[in-house]
Amino acid sequence: MSAGTTIATTDDGVRLHVETAGEGTPIVFVHEFGGDHRSWEAQMRHFSRRHRVVTYAARGYPPSEVPSDVAKYSQARATADIIAVMDHCGIDKAHIVGLSMGGFATVHFGLTYPDRALSLTVAGAGYGAEKEFETYFRGISEEVARQFEAMGAEAFSKIYGMAASRIPFLVKDPRGHAEFVEMLGQHSAEGSANTMRGVQMHRPSLYDLEDGLRKMAVPTLIISGDEDDHCLQPALFLKRVIPASGVLVLPKTGHTINLEEPDLFNRAVADFIAQVEAGRWLPRDPRSAPSEIMKTS
Protein backbone atom coordinates (compact mmCIF):
# COMPACT_ATOMS: atom_id res chain seq x y z
CA MET A 1 0.00 0.00 0.00
CA SER A 2 1.41 3.41 -0.93
CA ALA A 3 1.53 6.46 1.30
CA GLY A 4 -1.84 8.14 1.63
CA THR A 5 -4.43 9.80 3.78
CA THR A 6 -7.95 8.67 4.49
CA ILE A 7 -10.81 9.19 6.94
CA ALA A 8 -12.06 6.58 9.41
CA THR A 9 -15.42 6.92 11.16
CA THR A 10 -15.74 5.69 14.76
CA ASP A 11 -18.72 3.83 16.17
CA ASP A 12 -20.09 7.11 17.55
CA GLY A 13 -19.67 8.92 14.24
CA VAL A 14 -16.46 10.90 14.88
CA ARG A 15 -14.26 11.24 11.79
CA LEU A 16 -10.53 10.54 12.21
CA HIS A 17 -7.67 11.58 9.93
CA VAL A 18 -5.55 8.51 9.09
CA GLU A 19 -2.19 8.24 7.32
CA THR A 20 -0.68 5.03 5.93
CA ALA A 21 2.46 3.89 4.13
CA GLY A 22 4.37 0.74 3.22
CA GLU A 23 3.61 -2.96 3.06
CA GLY A 24 4.06 -5.84 5.48
CA THR A 25 2.97 -6.70 9.00
CA PRO A 26 0.94 -3.70 10.28
CA ILE A 27 2.09 -1.29 12.97
CA VAL A 28 -0.31 1.30 14.39
CA PHE A 29 1.19 4.38 16.11
CA VAL A 30 -0.91 6.16 18.76
CA HIS A 31 0.19 9.67 19.78
CA GLU A 32 0.49 11.47 23.10
CA PHE A 33 -1.57 14.39 24.44
CA GLY A 34 1.03 16.99 23.43
CA GLY A 35 1.60 15.50 19.99
CA ASP A 36 -0.49 14.38 17.04
CA HIS A 37 -0.14 12.12 14.01
CA ARG A 38 2.84 14.18 12.82
CA SER A 39 4.80 13.20 15.94
CA TRP A 40 5.38 9.75 14.43
CA GLU A 41 6.96 10.92 11.16
CA ALA A 42 10.41 9.50 12.00
CA GLN A 43 8.79 6.15 12.79
CA MET A 44 6.50 6.19 9.76
CA ARG A 45 9.48 6.72 7.47
CA HIS A 46 11.67 4.13 9.19
CA PHE A 47 9.19 1.29 9.63
CA SER A 48 7.40 1.70 6.28
CA ARG A 49 10.48 0.11 4.68
CA ARG A 50 9.38 -3.27 6.08
CA HIS A 51 5.88 -2.80 7.47
CA ARG A 52 2.49 -1.36 6.68
CA VAL A 53 2.42 1.62 9.03
CA VAL A 54 -0.62 3.55 10.20
CA THR A 55 -1.01 6.62 12.35
CA TYR A 56 -3.93 8.93 12.99
CA ALA A 57 -4.95 12.12 14.73
CA ALA A 58 -7.04 11.33 17.80
CA ARG A 59 -10.49 12.81 18.17
CA GLY A 60 -10.09 16.44 19.18
CA TYR A 61 -6.91 16.84 17.10
CA PRO A 62 -7.37 18.48 13.67
CA PRO A 63 -7.63 17.44 10.92
CA SER A 64 -9.67 14.83 12.83
CA GLU A 65 -13.07 15.97 14.04
CA VAL A 66 -13.26 17.98 17.28
CA PRO A 67 -16.46 17.04 19.15
CA SER A 68 -17.70 19.85 21.37
CA ASP A 69 -19.29 17.46 23.88
CA VAL A 70 -16.75 16.34 26.49
CA ALA A 71 -18.77 13.12 26.90
CA LYS A 72 -17.40 12.11 23.49
CA TYR A 73 -13.93 11.79 25.06
CA SER A 74 -12.90 8.94 27.37
CA GLN A 75 -10.29 6.25 27.85
CA ALA A 76 -12.72 3.67 26.47
CA ARG A 77 -13.38 5.85 23.40
CA ALA A 78 -9.65 6.39 22.85
CA THR A 79 -9.10 2.63 22.95
CA ALA A 80 -12.03 1.84 20.67
CA ASP A 81 -10.78 4.44 18.16
CA ILE A 82 -7.71 2.27 17.51
CA ILE A 83 -10.06 -0.53 16.47
CA ALA A 84 -12.02 1.89 14.27
CA VAL A 85 -8.81 2.84 12.46
CA MET A 86 -7.75 -0.79 12.06
CA ASP A 87 -11.15 -1.83 10.77
CA HIS A 88 -11.18 1.07 8.32
CA CYS A 89 -7.77 -0.02 7.01
CA GLY A 90 -8.81 -3.67 6.82
CA ILE A 91 -6.30 -4.72 9.49
CA ASP A 92 -7.15 -7.74 11.60
CA LYS A 93 -4.09 -7.70 13.87
CA ALA A 94 -1.27 -5.21 14.38
CA HIS A 95 1.66 -4.24 16.52
CA ILE A 96 0.38 -1.28 18.58
CA VAL A 97 2.89 1.43 19.56
CA GLY A 98 1.74 4.24 21.86
CA LEU A 99 3.36 7.13 23.70
CA SER A 100 2.01 8.61 26.95
CA MET A 101 -1.74 9.11 26.38
CA GLY A 102 -1.29 6.74 23.45
CA GLY A 103 0.60 4.37 25.75
CA PHE A 104 -2.36 4.22 28.12
CA ALA A 105 -4.63 3.50 25.15
CA THR A 106 -2.20 0.77 24.09
CA VAL A 107 -2.37 -0.87 27.54
CA HIS A 108 -6.16 -0.78 27.44
CA PHE A 109 -6.11 -2.13 23.89
CA GLY A 110 -4.18 -5.17 25.13
CA LEU A 111 -6.68 -5.69 27.94
CA THR A 112 -9.78 -5.14 25.82
CA TYR A 113 -8.79 -6.48 22.41
CA PRO A 114 -5.92 -8.95 23.01
CA ASP A 115 -6.84 -10.98 19.94
CA ARG A 116 -6.27 -7.93 17.72
CA ALA A 117 -2.78 -7.16 19.10
CA LEU A 118 0.40 -8.81 17.80
CA SER A 119 2.38 -6.84 20.38
CA LEU A 120 2.25 -3.71 22.51
CA THR A 121 4.88 -1.00 22.87
CA VAL A 122 4.00 1.20 25.85
CA ALA A 123 6.25 4.27 25.99
CA GLY A 124 6.20 7.12 28.51
CA ALA A 125 3.02 5.92 30.22
CA GLY A 126 2.55 6.81 33.87
CA TYR A 127 1.27 10.34 34.50
CA GLY A 128 -1.49 10.19 37.08
CA ALA A 129 -0.94 6.48 37.68
CA GLU A 130 1.00 6.85 40.95
CA LYS A 131 -1.63 6.59 43.67
CA GLU A 132 -0.08 9.29 45.88
CA PHE A 133 -0.36 11.84 43.06
CA GLU A 134 -3.85 11.00 41.77
CA THR A 135 -5.57 13.98 43.36
CA TYR A 136 -2.84 16.38 42.25
CA PHE A 137 -2.90 14.99 38.71
CA ARG A 138 -6.66 15.49 38.35
CA GLY A 139 -6.40 19.04 39.67
CA ILE A 140 -3.51 20.05 37.42
CA SER A 141 -5.27 18.42 34.44
CA GLU A 142 -8.29 20.66 34.99
CA GLU A 143 -5.97 23.67 35.21
CA VAL A 144 -4.32 22.68 31.91
CA ALA A 145 -7.75 22.42 30.30
CA ARG A 146 -8.72 25.87 31.60
CA GLN A 147 -5.47 27.39 30.33
CA PHE A 148 -5.99 25.97 26.84
CA GLU A 149 -9.44 27.59 26.84
CA ALA A 150 -8.30 30.90 28.31
CA MET A 151 -5.04 31.42 26.42
CA GLY A 152 -5.56 29.42 23.25
CA ALA A 153 -3.29 26.64 22.02
CA GLU A 154 -0.66 28.87 20.41
CA ALA A 155 0.03 30.89 23.55
CA PHE A 156 -0.30 28.06 26.05
CA SER A 157 1.92 25.73 24.01
CA LYS A 158 4.91 27.86 25.04
CA ILE A 159 4.12 27.13 28.70
CA TYR A 160 3.04 23.49 28.36
CA GLY A 161 6.05 22.73 26.18
CA MET A 162 8.39 23.76 29.01
CA ALA A 163 7.14 21.16 31.50
CA ALA A 164 9.96 19.45 33.43
CA SER A 165 9.77 16.22 31.43
CA ARG A 166 10.11 18.19 28.16
CA ILE A 167 13.36 19.93 29.18
CA PRO A 168 15.66 17.02 28.23
CA PHE A 169 14.32 17.35 24.67
CA LEU A 170 15.01 21.10 24.70
CA VAL A 171 18.55 20.57 26.01
CA LYS A 172 19.59 17.91 23.49
CA ASP A 173 17.63 19.07 20.43
CA PRO A 174 16.48 22.74 20.53
CA ARG A 175 15.28 22.62 16.91
CA GLY A 176 13.26 19.49 17.49
CA HIS A 177 11.76 20.91 20.68
CA ALA A 178 10.84 24.16 18.89
CA GLU A 179 9.08 22.16 16.19
CA PHE A 180 7.19 20.18 18.85
CA VAL A 181 6.00 23.40 20.52
CA GLU A 182 5.03 24.91 17.16
CA MET A 183 2.90 21.88 16.30
CA LEU A 184 1.33 21.89 19.77
CA GLY A 185 0.34 25.51 19.17
CA GLN A 186 -1.58 24.41 16.08
CA HIS A 187 -3.87 22.11 18.09
CA SER A 188 -7.50 22.86 18.82
CA ALA A 189 -7.83 24.52 22.23
CA GLU A 190 -11.32 23.04 22.57
CA GLY A 191 -10.13 19.58 21.57
CA SER A 192 -7.17 19.73 23.95
CA ALA A 193 -9.35 20.87 26.86
CA ASN A 194 -11.95 18.18 26.18
CA THR A 195 -9.27 15.51 25.84
CA MET A 196 -7.72 16.57 29.13
CA ARG A 197 -11.08 16.49 30.92
CA GLY A 198 -12.56 13.43 29.25
CA VAL A 199 -9.55 11.15 28.84
CA GLN A 200 -6.67 12.22 31.06
CA MET A 201 -8.55 13.20 34.21
CA HIS A 202 -10.75 10.11 34.42
CA ARG A 203 -8.61 7.24 33.17
CA PRO A 204 -7.98 4.56 35.81
CA SER A 205 -4.57 4.23 37.41
CA LEU A 206 -2.39 1.54 35.87
CA TYR A 207 -2.11 0.08 39.36
CA ASP A 208 -5.87 -0.49 39.40
CA LEU A 209 -5.51 -2.71 36.33
CA GLU A 210 -3.16 -5.21 37.99
CA ASP A 211 -5.47 -8.24 37.93
CA GLY A 212 -6.10 -7.89 34.21
CA LEU A 213 -2.48 -7.11 33.41
CA ARG A 214 -1.28 -10.27 35.14
CA LYS A 215 -3.48 -12.30 32.77
CA MET A 216 -2.61 -10.34 29.61
CA ALA A 217 -0.54 -12.59 27.36
CA VAL A 218 0.31 -10.01 24.66
CA PRO A 219 4.07 -9.49 24.20
CA THR A 220 4.85 -6.04 25.60
CA LEU A 221 7.80 -3.65 25.47
CA ILE A 222 7.77 -0.85 28.05
CA ILE A 223 9.99 2.19 27.40
CA SER A 224 10.73 5.13 29.69
CA GLY A 225 13.19 7.98 29.80
CA ASP A 226 15.25 8.14 33.00
CA GLU A 227 14.39 11.84 33.43
CA ASP A 228 10.66 11.23 33.00
CA ASP A 229 10.28 10.77 36.74
CA HIS A 230 6.57 10.03 37.04
CA CYS A 231 6.74 7.30 34.40
CA LEU A 232 9.69 5.35 35.82
CA GLN A 233 7.93 3.59 38.70
CA PRO A 234 4.81 2.81 36.61
CA ALA A 235 7.13 1.32 33.96
CA LEU A 236 8.69 -1.00 36.55
CA PHE A 237 5.23 -1.89 37.83
CA LEU A 238 4.12 -2.87 34.32
CA LYS A 239 7.25 -5.00 33.95
CA ARG A 240 6.49 -6.82 37.18
CA VAL A 241 2.88 -7.66 36.35
CA ILE A 242 2.71 -8.23 32.56
CA PRO A 243 3.94 -11.80 31.94
CA ALA A 244 5.66 -11.41 28.54
CA SER A 245 7.14 -7.96 29.08
CA GLY A 246 10.48 -6.21 29.02
CA VAL A 247 11.45 -2.70 30.08
CA LEU A 248 13.91 -0.32 28.43
CA VAL A 249 15.09 2.87 30.16
CA LEU A 250 16.83 5.42 27.94
CA PRO A 251 19.47 7.59 29.67
CA LYS A 252 19.23 11.37 29.82
CA THR A 253 15.80 11.21 28.19
CA GLY A 254 12.50 12.78 29.14
CA HIS A 255 8.92 12.22 28.08
CA THR A 256 9.00 12.74 24.32
CA ILE A 257 11.00 9.56 23.76
CA ASN A 258 10.41 8.89 20.06
CA LEU A 259 11.27 12.50 19.15
CA GLU A 260 14.20 12.89 21.54
CA GLU A 261 15.91 9.64 20.60
CA PRO A 262 14.37 8.46 17.32
CA ASP A 263 17.25 6.16 16.39
CA LEU A 264 17.36 4.40 19.77
CA PHE A 265 13.58 4.18 19.86
CA ASN A 266 13.31 2.78 16.33
CA ARG A 267 16.04 0.20 16.86
CA ALA A 268 14.52 -0.98 20.15
CA VAL A 269 11.02 -1.31 18.71
CA ALA A 270 12.31 -2.99 15.53
CA ASP A 271 14.27 -5.55 17.55
CA PHE A 272 11.27 -6.18 19.81
CA ILE A 273 8.93 -6.72 16.84
CA ALA A 274 11.48 -9.05 15.22
CA GLN A 275 11.64 -11.15 18.39
CA VAL A 276 7.85 -11.26 18.64
CA GLU A 277 7.48 -12.34 15.02
CA ALA A 278 10.14 -15.03 15.55
CA GLY A 279 8.20 -16.34 18.56
CA ARG A 280 11.05 -15.50 20.90
CA TRP A 281 9.57 -12.77 23.13
CA LEU A 282 8.39 -15.08 25.87
CA PRO A 283 6.92 -14.83 29.38
CA ARG A 284 9.50 -14.72 32.15
CA ASP A 285 11.04 -18.11 32.85
CA PRO A 286 9.79 -19.25 36.30
CA ARG A 287 13.36 -20.32 37.15
CA SER A 288 14.26 -16.61 37.32
CA ALA A 289 11.72 -15.87 40.08
CA PRO A 290 12.69 -12.58 41.76
CA SER A 291 12.19 -14.06 45.24
CA GLU A 292 15.39 -16.07 44.84
CA ILE A 293 18.62 -14.08 45.28
CA MET A 294 21.21 -16.87 45.20
CA LYS A 295 20.84 -20.61 44.61
CA THR A 296 22.15 -22.95 47.31
CA SER A 297 20.67 -26.33 46.35
Rank of each mutant, 00 (worst) to 15 (best):
T253D: 09
A76F: 05
E130M: 14
Q233L: 10
Q147G: 06
P114G: 05
E210H: 02
A8C: 07
Q200I: 14
H88P: 00
R146K: 15
K215I: 02
P286L: 08
G103N: 04
A94K: 10
Y160M: 13
A42P: 07
G102R: 06
R166H: 13
F237V: 01
V199F: 15
P219G: 11
H88F: 06
R214E: 13
S224G: 09
R45L: 05
A153G: 06
V97M: 05
L118A: 15
S165Y: 08
A193E: 06
Y136M: 08
S141C: 14
S48C: 07
A105E: 02
A244F: 01
G24A: 04
S188D: 14
S188Y: 13
A274N: 12
A80V: 07
M201K: 15
F265C: 01
F47K: 11
M201G: 01
P290Q: 06
E19A: 09
G139V: 01
G152I: 01
Y207M: 06
A235R: 03
Q275Y: 10
S141E: 14
G279F: 02
L264G: 06
V70P: 04
H31F: 07
K172C: 00
V181S: 06
A58F: 08
D285G: 05
D228C: 03
Q233A: 13
R52K: 14
R45D: 14
Y127M: 09
